[in-house]
Simulated assay, not measured.
Amino acid sequence: MIRFWSGRAVRLATLLIGVAVGTFALLSASPVDPIEAYVGADSVQVSPEQREQIAERWGLDDPPVERFTAWAGQVLQGNLGTSQVFDAPVTEVIGEKFLSSLALMAAAWVISGVLGFALGVLAGSRPGTWIDRGVSWWAYTLASAPVFWVGLLLLYVFSVSLQWTPVCCAGPVGALPDEITLIERLHHLLLPALTLSIVGVAPVILHTRHAVIEVMASDQVTFARSLGESPRGVIVHRVLRNAAAPALMLQFASLGELFGGSVLAEQVFNYPGLGQAITTAALRQDVPLLMGISLAMALFVFAGNLLGDLVHSKVDPRVALVKEGVR
């Protein structure tokens, strides 16, 4: 266990360093003038003296290596810096926005996992039938559908045409956060979460279907059938657990794609989460906030993959973390 956790710690440190260096290098190579992006539409009215003050305030005139070194020194002290757009500590901005995105991603993650596993088992247990072909066709179609296109389609159908769901935001427009009820929050959360889950359900369906077909063709299922076990008993006692292991691992590994999809979904529905903060920070060249969000995303995805490995090894006793020396 010591070898396992120490190896994971080294991987995490290497990942965070690589993400930080890569993100800062891309931002430094951006052709966008950071001062004009910071000022926005009022850039024409800014005098040269004011530009110098802005550059001095945020250290925009310093060499890139010096800026990165200064930022890294603050990070080692637990300080991610101050957001230029929100004029608040980066940790506070990420913490506030992440809670909204977490509710959205958690709802989509659960829906896509449960629905994808159920449909995958249904299709895999009846290979070659019209049910299998229909579910597979639907999964392949969803796998190639962009998140923003699905979001716009659902928005037009359920919000504009049927008027069943709100058009935007995480609550009624003009209402204070303390005045929004739980029912109203769930009502505004429904369509964005459905958008993410519809797109994310496809890989779970396809992988679960493949795993079920393999298990159904195994010797243990053949032996169980020879003993007179019913088809339902074969599915419940022989197939579900063996198919659940790869499905769970895939579900945890998809957190990165889920995070990326939430950025587009939040833009379509104007949902005030971390994805919307990423877009705002990118357009305004808010380097401290972008760097902090990149590290938070890397940590989030790494934790998801780690949980996926641990859950996979618990669900399927045959799986052992051999590379880390855990038996």
Rank of each mutant, 00 (worst) to 15 (best):
R57V: 07
Q77F: 05
L80P: 06
G78C: 10
N79I: 00
S43P: 06
W71Q: 05
L60G: 09
R67L: 10
R51K: 07
E52H: 07
V75M: 09
V75D: 09
E66I: 14
G78T: 11
I54W: 09
V46Y: 03
V44G: 13
L80Y: 11
Q45V: 00
W71E: 05
G73P: 04
A70I: 01
S83V: 03
W71A: 07
L76T: 04
F68P: 08
Q50E: 14
T69H: 08
V75S: 06
W58T: 03
V65K: 12
F68K: 00
E56T: 10
Q74A: 08
D62M: 15
N79F: 01
S43G: 07
Q45N: 03
P64C: 15
V44L: 15
V65H: 10
E49D: 01
A55K: 13
E52M: 10
R57N: 03
G78H: 04
D61N: 06
N79P: 03
I54G: 13
V44Y: 09
E52Q: 10
L76N: 08
S83K: 01
W71M: 11
N79G: 01
V44N: 13
S43V: 07
E66G: 12
G78A: 07
T82F: 02
G73N: 14
Q74V: 02
L80V: 02
R67T: 09
V65A: 12
T69P: 14
V46F: 01
P48D: 02
G78S: 03
R67C: 04
W71P: 08
P48Y: 04
Q74R: 14
E66W: 13
G59T: 00
